[in-house]
Design a protein around this nucleic acid. Structure first.
Lengths: 144, 144
DNA sequence: CTGTATCCACTAAGATACTG
DNA sequence: CAGTATCTTAGTGGATACAG
């Protein structure tokens, strides 16, 4: 609990009057493994139930779905409506803020689609160059 | 090393013919903590040396800077030019692809700037509601 | 149905020290 | 100056079991 490390975190920025740390922060929040996909699952506009999201975002664990939804709710991107029926039913829906998030996300989506081939190509070329230069260090693999 | 868990990773997608997993993947790649800031440090256009980037992205460790730069180089976003002088000098510069990346990043930047107040407001309101509903579970804090 | 709680494996990331 | 190597710690995410 004692704050031994004080971590300044200020001025960790390239440009003068820009809050690029805040962008990085925001990007990190929406850019994690599941958030984008959950938002995508809700982007159609209608309210979706917990299990339906779980089905749409196949591969997500309950834990991660709950955490992701809670994070999105916390930041005001989705609204949670609970019906105390039996069995219980909970609807999730994008808020207005959430819908605003979809806009830049779609832009990024378009960008990713457009440039992914270029990225993959660059990656392959890089891998090839690595295989040429790797052997130079391989000689240094002396056991201690 | 034995692959006990087989991890399908296919069809983890909401919409039919969309590669939203790929967007998530791309977003995760460019959306991590340091990548955005390093790209920002290079976004002015000129070539920048290793230590200069290190200075601009204050707080980054050598390890993380090296890894981030290697990742960016790998994906074709930055070019690395090495001058075998003494002392050695290495310049990093955004490639054309890297400059294309700056475009959606700026859009996201604008979005983050515009909506951050709304997000922070939502977060505070959520925190308040939590404090009201938390006590209900506090009663269950029985020691095992 | 809609979660919560616990445990465990893996990875990411910082600090530090050393090399060409 | 421009990295690499290694160690250690903290956080992420999955599986499972259980609760309301």
């Amino acid at each position: 609990m004692g704050n031994t490390n004080k971590v300044v975190r200020e001025t960790a920025c390239a440009k003068p009057s820009s809050h690029c740390r805040e962008v990085a922060d925001t990007l990190a929040r929406i850019g994690d493994k599941w958030t984008v996909m959950v938002v995508a699952a809700l982007s159609a506009g209608e309210a979706v139930r917990y299990n339906e999201i779980s089905r749409r975002v196949d591969g997500i664990s309950q834990r991660m779905l709950t955490l992701t939804l809670k994070g999105l709710e916390r930041d005001g991107f989705v609204s949670r409506t609970m019906y105390p029926t039996i069995p219980p039913r909970v609807d999730y829906e994008l808020t207005d803020l959430g819908k605003e998030l979809v806009v830049p996300l779609r832009a990024l989506y378009a960008w990713a689609e457009a440039y992914r081939p270029a990225i993959l190509a660059a990656r392959e070329e890089f891998a090839k160059r690595e295989e040429i230069e790797a052997p130079r260090r391989a000689a240094f693999t002396a056991p201690k």
